[in-house]
Design a protein around this nucleic acid. Structure first.
Lengths: 369, 369
DNA sequence: GTGAAAGCGCTAACAG
DNA sequence: CTGTTAGCGCTTTCAC
C-alpha cells in the first residue's frame, strides 16, 4: 500500500480506527500504552493523516485563505526596463511588496492561532474560479480589493467567512462582510498639508495609480482636500497615473518633467514603490531631493528608510491588515451570526529627508476619522 | 441548508450529482443547455465546491506546500532595536525577505501551473506536526533546510513528493528526495577573490550566520578558500556570528570595531540583510564605504541596489529556488519513480559601489562547480 | 477507554 | 450525454 491510512495503522497496532483518530485528535482520551502503540505503528508505516479526509469529516480545515490580484498586469513598462539589463529582474521582485507584507502579516497571525495560510493570486482571465478554489478548502478567506467580482464574492461569502481588505465597503451586496481598510484619505491629507504648511510648497504634483485602485483614489482625494483647505486650486485628476511599480515611478519622472510647463516643487507618489523608483531617476537628471524637488510616498515599505535620501512617507500597517484579517475571520468562524465589523486602521506620517525635514525618526500618529 | 452540496444543485437543476460534478470538472462533456441549468442552480443556491471532498475523492488537491523555519528566533537583538523607536518595526518586517522571495517564486510558478500554495512556518517547539499538517493537504511539499527533522521528512516523503531547498544533501536517509541548492561556496569564493585580487585588500572580516545555517557555512568555506588560494592566513571561524537580520548586522559593526586590534579593510556579510543594516551604522560612526572600509553581502535582495552606497553582493536566484521547487514537485507528481534530481543553481557577482567598484550594473555569472 | 457504524461532499468508472 | 454506484480517509455519536 502506497499511502497508509487509519485502517493500516489500526491493524498494525491492533486497535480500531476510532482509536487511531483519537490519538491524533484528543490524545488524552486514550490510554498511554495504547497511544504509544498507535504512534509506533504510525511511524513504522509512515502514516501522515489526510488533511482532506479530516477536513471533510470535521468540516474544518485549519487553514485560512488569501486571494489577491495578479498585479503584474499593471506594469506597463516592463519591457522597457530591459535597458538596465540585469537590474530589471528586480522590478518583478519589487512589485508585490505590498501584498507580501499582507501575506506575511496573515501568515504570522494565522500561525499564532494554529492556522495555515493558502495563498493564491487571481490570474487575469478567470479570477472567479481561483477564489472559489481557495474558498473550497479553507475555513475563511481574505480578499484584497479588486481581486474578484462582487457577485462571486457574494456567493462565496454565503458559504464561509470572508473579509475584504483595503476595499471600499460601499457595495450594499457586500454589507454583511467584515472589512479592514486603512486611513488613506487622512494620511495623504496630512502629508500634503505638511508640504504646504510646514514647507511652504504650493506647486505639488500627484502621481496616482490606476483608476481602479481604491487606495490610490482615496489618497488622491486626500491630496485634493489639502488643496481645498489651503485655498489652492484643486486638481481634478492626478497629474499622471502610473502602475504603482518601481519602474513606472522612474518613468513618471520623465513624463512629469516633459509635460509640465514648470517643474513642481514636490512630487507626491501614490505609493512608496514609485517614489523609490523615482529617486535614482531624479538623481540621474541632476535634480537634488529635497533641495530642488521634494518627494513623498505612501506605505512605508521597508526600503523607504534605506534609500537616500530616506523617503518621507505615510506608514500604513500592512502586516496589521493581515493580522486583522485573521482576527476577523476567526471571530466569524466562532460566531457566524455576529454583526459585520469594519475596521479602519490608522496611518502615521514618517518624516524623513526626502521632504526636506531633517529628522529621520520622527513618527507621529494621525487622527484618522 | 447552510452550505449547498452537489445534491442540492442536482435537485434544483433536475440532474444527477454526476452531472453537476462534470460541469465543474470537464464542462465539455455536458450539453450546453444542461450545463447552464446547473450553473444557474449553483448560482442561486450559492454553491462552492468543497476542495476537501474533491481532494479526497480524486486524491489530488491542486495545491503545493511550502514549509520554512520560523526565523524570528534567530534575532537576538530585537529588544535593543527599541532605541530607534518606530524604525524598529522594520526589522521584523525585513526579517524574512529571503523566504519571501522563495514564497513569491513558488507562488508564481505554482499559479502558472494551476496550483495554489499552502505556506506554513514551523513554530519552534513542535515543528513536526506543522509539516505533517501541510503534507496532509497538498500534492507535494517544499521544505526549506532546517525546518524539520530528518526522521519526520523521511516519513513524509514516503507519502508525497518532497523537495528540499537550500539544504545539503549529505544525509543518506534523504537520498531519494529532490534537492535544489545554490552555489554558495563558489559565490563567496569569487567575491572574496575579487576583494583580494582586484581591490588588493588582505584584511577581511567575515560576519557569519548561526552555525546551523548550511548556506552561511558554505559561504564561509568559500571565504576560506579564497584565502587559501591567495596564500593568506586562513581564518578558522567567522570573525563574528550574527542573526542574519538587519539589526544584527548593525550590531555586528560595533562588535567588530571593538573587538579587532585593527580595523579590517573589508567586511563581508553572510547575507545582504546584515550588510544593509551595517551601512547606516558605519555611516553613523564616520566610516566611509568603500573608501575606509569595503562592504559586501550575499543574496542580492531588492534593497541592495537601492541603499547608498549600492551594495556589492552575490546574486542568488531566490525566486528561482521556488520555481525549481514547483518544477521538481510537479515532475515527481507525474512520475513518482523518476530518479532523484539535484539542482545546483548558479550565482553571479554583482559589483556595485560598496566594494569600491564604480560600475553599478556589472553582472557576471560564475562557473559554479 | 475503546469499538462499530454512519456519513462528510465529491469523483470516477461503468452502464445505459 | 447522463445516471448509478462505490468508495476516498477520517471524525463522530452512540454503545459497550
Amino acid at each position: 500500500m502506497s499511502t497508509p491510512t487509519v485502517y493500516d495503522v489500526a491493524n498494525h497496532a491492533g486497535v480500531s480506527i476510532a482509536t487511531v483518530s483519537r490519538v491524533y485528535r484528543n490524545p488524552d482520551t486514550v490510554r498511554a500504552e495504547t497511544r504509544d502503540r498507535v504512534l509506533a505503528a504510525a511511524r513504522t508505516l509512515g502514516y501522515v493523516p489526510s488533511g482532506n479526509a479530516r477536513g471533510l469529516a470535521s468540516r474544518a480545515t485549519g487553514v485560512l485563505g488569501l486571494c489577491f490580484p495578479d498585479n503584474l498586469q499593471y506594469d506597463e513598462h516592463r519591457e522597457e526596463t530591459q535597458e538596465l539589463g540585469h537590474e530589471a529582474h528586480h522590478d518583478e521582485a519589487d512589485l508585490m511588496i505590498y501584498s507580501d507584507e499582507v501575506i506575511r502579516g496573515m501568515e504570522r497571525a494565522a500561525r499564532e492561532r494554529g492556522y495555515g495560510l493558502l495563498i493564491a493570486a487571481t490570474v487575469a482571465g478567470d479570477p472567479a474560479s481561483t477564489v472559489a478554489d481557495v474558498a473550497g478548502r479553507v475555513d475563511g478567506v481574505a480578499v484584497l480589493a479588486g481581486t474578484v467580482s462582487t457577485a462571486e464574492l457574494e456567493v462565496i461569502s454565503r458559504r464561509l467567512p470572508v473579509v475584504m481588505l483595503a476595499g471600499p465597503r460601499e457595495n450594499p451586496a457586500l454589507d454583511h462582510l467584515d472589512h479592514v481598510e486603512v486611513a488613506n484619505f487622512d494620511g495623504q491629507l496630512a502629508m500634503t498639508r505638511h508640504l504646504i504648511v510646514d514647507h511652504g510648497l504650493t506647486k505639488l504634483a500627484f502621481v496616482g495609480g490606476p483608476p481602479n485602485s481604491p487606495d490610490g483614489e482615496a489618497r488622491f482625494r486626500g491630496f485634493q482636500a489639502a488643496h481645498l483647505e489651503a485655498g489652492l486650486d484643486i486638481p481634478a485628476e492626478p497629474r499622471i497615473r502610473a502602475g504603482l511599480t518601481t519602474s513606472s515611478g522612474r518613468h513618471a519622472i520623465g513624463e512629469l518633467l516633459a509635460t509640465l510647463p514648470e517643474r513642481p516643487q514636490a512630487v507626491m507618489f501614490a505609493n512608496d514603490q514609485m517614489a523609490v523608483g523615482a529617486l535614482p531617476e531624479l538623481e540621474h537628471r541632476g535634480l537634488r531631493v529635497p533641495a530642488d524637488i521634494a518627494v513623498t510616498g505612501f506605505d512605508d515599505i521597508s526600503v523607504s528608510r534605506l534609500v537616500r535620501p530616506a523617503l518621507t512617507t505615510v506608514r500604513q500597517p500592512m502586516q496589521e491588515l493581515g493580522r486583522h484579517a485573521v482576527d476577523l475571520l476567526l471571530a466569524r468562524v466562532a460566531d457566524r451570526d455576529r454583526a459585520p465589523v469594519s475596521r479602519l486602521l490608522q496611518v502615521s506620517m514618517v518624516r524623513r529627508a526626502s521632504c526636506g525635514c531633517r529628522v529621520s525618526h520622527d513618527h507621529q500618529p494621525l487622527n484618522g476619522s
